[in-house]
Design a protein around this nucleic acid. Structure first.
Length: 399
DNA sequence: AAGGTAGACAACCGCCAATGT
DNA sequence: CACATTGGCGGTTGTCTACCT
């Protein structure tokens, strides 16, 4: 399975088939043609041209106000789709490719701590998105289920005894469909409880047990059965003790960013609120990165000299503090190269390429960036040209 | 060679909290 | 204060590729 295998994912056009227009969120469209909604908003895989438009828009206007992207850039995508594309694929400091062993280990630990809090986990995995982690985890769950193995290795099992979740205990016993005598006949349930400790991990560690969700959807209504599973078994001293010793691990506040009840979308490179009292009107200024709160976990990429970093000009928010941490800046430059390659070297109306895997460890200097920008400019001349490439060159010289 | 399966990935959806008007 | 908008989040689905039988 190569990381690039999914680049050619044109088949995604079939998504949302059969949904009524009311059910579609982005603009409410999407009736017959799954590529365009009723408002003409495109769906399905993003093309390189779309990526280019979105990148240029974000570069000029910053993140946030995603619905304005469609209004102002002509990009025929709903704001949500733009945001997702940016967050998961275009933002500059993304890592691509398989998780390293360190990252896998960290995911296990974080999941033991947080459960299916993908965004929170992503905040501690530099360059990784919640979607990646979620996909990884779901795949892992399926694999472990099939193999009859516990989700967590023993050391994590032991170490996470003190972890639990912020969700309250269910006060009433709701039948666990995976333990019911009527619903456990399918072979997929054979994994469910093989030992008390595994039962504990299945049911107490995850507020919405991810180990079950991939298999549950064909058989159970969404969320109700899963989220209502007993998180802790009072009869199990292990689970009760874990609850009593619960400590909530949350990333340290960043730049005074307020803690929102549900929003922990403060992963590295994700635009954080820059003000202690952020307002929506400032969201457009959030294109700057934030301190790498996860650097303590994975520090291997932190050694890039700041002088080598490229960063988008902060044209809209000159008052903001400098970009924190060398790693973030490095990844800007890293992704700059990748993105230019992605944007300009691909057939324009095919699904866009992903960030190059091979550049992740490349030491980047200004010459390289300039060369990349020049190459991008050259390559783009086959395209309809706009000011983007000139901007890129300018930025390359900016360093 | 054909079919099945697993893994990886992208993108969508609904929900909901925060914020703006 | 009510309503609308925005966007963050977790869950889910669908496709592709590689591998296995």
């Amino acid at each position: 399975m190569t990381p690039s295998s999914s680049n050619n994912n044109s088949g995604l056009l079939q998504q949302s088939e059969g949904r009524s227009p009311q059910e579609l969120s982005c603009g409410g469209g999407g009736g017959g043609d799954v590529v365009e909604g009723s408002k003409g908003l495109k769906k399905g895989p993003w093309t390189a041209v779309e990526d280019q438009i979105l990148m240029e828009y974000v570069r000029k206007h910053g993140e946030g106000n995603w619905n304005a992207v469609q209004r102002n850039s002509g990009l025929n995508r709903c704001g949500k789709s733009c945001r997702l594309r940016w967050a998961n694929h275009l933002r500059p400091n993304l890592k691509k490719g398989a998780f390293s062993p360190d990252e896998e280990r960290l995911i296990l630990e974080l999941h033991a701590k947080y459960g299916n809090k993908w965004a929170r986990m992503a905040s501690q995995l530099p360059g990784r998105t919640d979607n990646e982690i979620k996909n990884y985890w779901n795949t892992r769950v399926k694999r472990r289920q099939r193999q009859g193995l516990p989700l967590y290795p023993n050391d994590i099992k032991q170490s996470q005894q003190s972890h639990s979740h912020s969700r309250s205990l269910p006060t009433t016993t709701i039948q666990n469909p995976f333990q019911s005598t009527t619903n456990c006949t399918t072979p997929t349930f054979s994994f469910q409880i093989q030992s008390p400790i595994q039962a504990h991990h299945l049911h107490s560690l995850s507020p919405t047990p991810p180990s079950l969700s991939p298999l549950s959807s064909p058989h159970h209504p969404k969320s109700t059965t899963l989220t209502s599973l007993p998180l802790f078994d009072p009869s199990n001293p292990t689970t009760t003790s874990s609850f009593s010793s619960f400590t909530f691990h949350r990333p340290a506040p960043i730049l005074g960013a307020p803690v929102r009840y549900k929003r922990y979308r403060d992963s590295v490179g994700f635009s954080p609120p820059v003000s202690p009292t952020p307002q929506r009107s400032t969201s457009i200024l959030r294109a700057n990165s934030m301190p790498d709160i996860a650097s303590s976990h994975l520090t291997s990429t932190n050694s890039m000299p700041e002088s080598a970093a490229f960063q988008f000009p902060r044209t809209l928010n000159p008052s903001l503090p400098p970009l924190p941490s060398s790693r973030t800046q490095f990844e800007y430059s890293e992704s700059f190269l990748s993105s230019t390659g992605s944007v300009y070297s691909v057939k324009s109306e095919l699904p866009s390429s992903q960030v190059s895997q091979t550049q992740s460890e490349v030491t980047i200097d200004t010459k390289v960036i300039s060369a990349a920008a020049a190459a991008a400019l050259s390559a783009s001349q086959a395209h309809s040209s706009n000011g983007l490439l000139e901007d890129l060159l300018q930025e390359a010289e900016f360093i």
